[in-house]
Amino acid sequence: MKTPLIELNNITFKYLGEDTKNALNNVSLNIYPGEWVALIGHNGSGKSTLAKTINGLIAPTSGEINVKGEEVTEATLWDVRRMIGMVFQNPDNQFVGSTVEDDVAFGLENQGVPRDEMVARVKDALETVRMEDFAIKEPARLSGGQKQRVAIAGVIALRPDVIILDEATSMLDPQGRQEVIETIRKIKEDSNLTVISITHDIDEAAHANRVLVMREGEIIQEGTPAEIFSRGEELIELGLDVPFPEKLKAALKDRGMSVPDHYLTEEGMVDWLWTSGLNK
């Protein structure tokens, strides 16, 4: 068995002033190197809170978090943040620099990276997200998807082991969303990154190796995307959209056709459709 990169043991968290409900309730979770984990669930299910506890932006009320075998404490906090990069929801509010290259360099400046190396790493990171032509542009001249790609470049320039996408695509249009997911997927393949993505977006969750479903501060289901997506109707209650093949299946079922119960990808659906047509 592989050793987990991130270990969460019985994490509980309660926001100040809320005395009845825990935002996180006894969550235990292991994340392994090179994995893509999607965290899904409706609003207020504790997804973002969980992400913030992982890199120490908020300290859990009880329980412990280990990153690479090291417990996240006051003393190890900054080392942990070095290993974990985070991309947030709002593309405007996380853009610190005045231009694209300044923003990418911001994290490197914080770590005291010498300037020569910084220039090379900024250039590299911008090439990876295909934003090298925009290096001296100001954020006001970029689209949402471009700003989000710059945010990713800022994170990968730091060479982290883990990237957490905290609803990083939720404010983007479908095209921007596609671009960002594609960029992440490519970076992940190239550098064996661990990705934790918190999302409502079904396409993003479909890229994951493992999907965790959260409700009321607890992880209630865990499985591969195929296992989770085959639940159909249940997904809507969990604040998620149903993948297109599932929608099609439901519509066919309504019209009296017998459809397979297991989850099918779009290609799988096409295959099934034209073979089932032949059977008649």
Partner: peptide
């Protein structure tokens, strides 16, 4: 939060890009 997540700890020990 975004600044902290990217390791901002104040002016000490920072290098400059520009």
């Amino acid at each position: 939060i975004a600044m902290e997540a990217r390791g901002y700890q104040g002016g000490e020990g920072r290098t400059k890009y520009r």
